[in-house]
């Protein structure tokens, strides 16, 4: 039973890698200086800004909520936090679009389709906080309370308590969530297409538009950007996991009872 499903899974999971291989094949002989135009440069800057802001905010708020809910045992908030997970990203984007595109009291303070992409960030944070919460709350569930008690007995400041008794165990789930979110947010179409502006566009939106408009004449630009971005994130993943490997392994050994 498990063997046949393993083979099917392997075939399915090999497809993204096949896709990347085809991208490499297609971009051989591509003139890379074509990417050095204003639209792509502005897009890179705004993509980094939106991705990092929403990812870091989601990680911080998600961890804070997991911590609060674990400490205060408020199960009603934990179940309420599941709600955004039932809303697909597209639907969430449209709901925020309805609220922030005029006619609502907060209009003017926050606004859809403006250059700072605040509503895009807000949508992502709203959608991703429950995901981060889910990734982190398990760690809090199996946290050894002895470490925290020890830190308190040694009269460390609250921030120091967090750093020695909780942070080391959070590194792995937070690192996993960080890269999942960065990979997802930095190269997506659905949310920024509804809530963004025509200049500067996020990488995913610009790449999709260059790919599909004008009889595929600019398709190679999009292929090249998709390839570089994948390799960039891949390098980041490998580097950060290699750097934290020693620490994570020590924690994993210590956690096993």
């Amino acid at each position: 039973m498990s063997r046949s499903s393993l083979w099917l899974s392997l075939v399915v999971l090999a497809l993204p890698f096949t896709g990347v291989t085809f991208l490499i094949y297609e971009t051989v002989g591509f003139n890379w200086s074509e990417l050095n135009d204003e639209a792509w440069r502005a897009s890179l800057a705004v993509t980094l800004y939106v991705t990092l802001t929403s990812t870091l905010l989601s990680l911080m708020i998600g961890t804070w909520l997991a911590r609060t809910i674990y400490m205060k045992r408020s199960s009603w908030l934990a179940s309420l936090l599941k709600w955004p997970m039932f809303v697909p990203h597209v639907a969430a984007a449209y709901l925020f679009y309805l609220l922030f595109s005029g006619g609502f009291p907060v209009y003017g303070l926050f606004e859809a389709n403006e250059r700072n992409h605040l509503v895009v960030i807000l949508t992502y944070v709203w959608k991703e906080v429950p995901f981060v919460f889910l990734m982190v709350v398990g760690t809090y569930g199996q946290l050894n309370h002895g470490y925290l008690d020890m830190a308190k007995t040694l009269q460390l400041k609250p921030l120091e308590q967090f750093r020695v008794a909780e942070w080391p165990f959070l590194v792995k789930p937070l690192l996993d969530s960080f890269w999942v979110l960065v990979a997802f947010i930095s190269f997506a179409y659905e949310v920024p297409a509804l809530l963004g502006v025509t200049f500067p566009e996020l990488l995913g939106v610009l790449a999709y538009e260059r790919l599909t408009t004008g009889l595929f004449l600019n398709a190679f630009e999009s292929y090249a950007v998709a390839l570089i971005w994948t390799l960039f994130i891949f390098t980041g993943v490998v580097a950060s996991y290699a750097l934290t490997a020693k620490q994570r392994r020590r924690i994993e050994r210590g956690m096993r009872r």
Partner: peptide, 15 residues
Amino acid sequence: LFIPVLASMFGMYIA
């Protein structure tokens, strides 16, 4: 999980 869906999708489109 770490490959941007849209990026690998362009490749899968060719494939």
